[in-house]
Amino acid sequence: MKIKETPSRIVFRIINTILMLILAFICLLPLWHVLMASFSNPTVLSQNTGVVFWPLSSPGHPATLKGYQLVLRNVGLARGYANTIFYVGVGTLLCLFFVSIAAYCMSRRKTLFMKYLVVLLMVTMFFNGGLIPTYYVNKTLGIVNTRWVMIAMGLIGVFYVIILKTSFQQLPASLEESAQLDGAGHMTVLLKIILPLSKATLAVIALFFAVGKWNEYLTAIIYLNNRALYPLQCYLREMLVDSSGNQEIAISGDADTYNEDFKKLLQYSTIIYATLPILAIYPFVQKYFVKGVMIGSIKG
């Protein structure tokens, strides 16, 4: 049934479409600016004050990949990249491992005490010790300023456990019962039957965790002093935000070749260099994120 549209409806639709286009433009503009600026000529760029819609150049000053060449040579950034890959890789694997175990334990309905495990975890969603006591605990454990603290903090997200537990409970109970009759232990049931059937939920959890870990900087600046352990985001912070003199060291990458003209170009190239993995996987994984929010909103 097609009803003839009223004039006011048509006007609304036009305005709405324009509004949405403006929104998309605003969301993309800063990123586009950074991307285009990163290919610009450093001399022209350092004098530019407007939005960069296209790589800047002028006669005698061509657009260039120089920024990326310097970024790739930057020792600090390379180290940061390696550290971040380590934290994301090891963190995600351990997160999936422990979250699966926790969810599995909680989903055992025929046990007397597992319901208290749920309570033990849920309570921490509302009560926590806050910054200083948590720091104090880590200090007492002796893991401040080590890689371990970066892995341990936020490793087992209660929210993830609950999502996974719900997905486990939706599997038919007969599957595992028959496996147990065949003499399969808990680890076998978990690894061979339950986890393979929960791949989609595990993927969502892994993605949330990995992206969060890739972007995280707060844990690192709270717990790490040793620059050799810094994740990428900490080097980025020094290059983009810090104004205390570390900036020049970070930008020149520990070499003594700092050049004021290259500062902006290097900042832009670094942003792209550090964000590229996220932007590269974004189109393929964004639907999982949408799915994740939906699961969260239903269960939450």
């Binding site: 422990f98 175990i101 926790a102 599995y104 334990c105 055992r108 025929k110 046990t111 007397l112 005490f113 597992m114 495990l117 033990l120 975890l121 921490t124 009560f127 926590n128 010790g129 806050g130 200083i132 006591p133 948590t134 104090y136 605990v137 454990l141 341990a152 903090m153 490793l155 087992i156 232990g185 808990h186 680890m187």
Partner: peptide, 30 residues
């Protein structure tokens, strides 16, 4: 229950330890 589910409880130990150290100890730290 213990006899039947011993292995599940063992499985839960690392989880309980993690939460006691990184979530409950800081609450005591208040």
């Amino acid at each position: 229950d213990w006899k039947k589910n011993k292995s599940v409880y063992f499985l839960a130990i690392p989880i309980v330890i993690y939460f006691l150290i990184w979530h409950y100890a800081p609450i005591v730290g208040l």
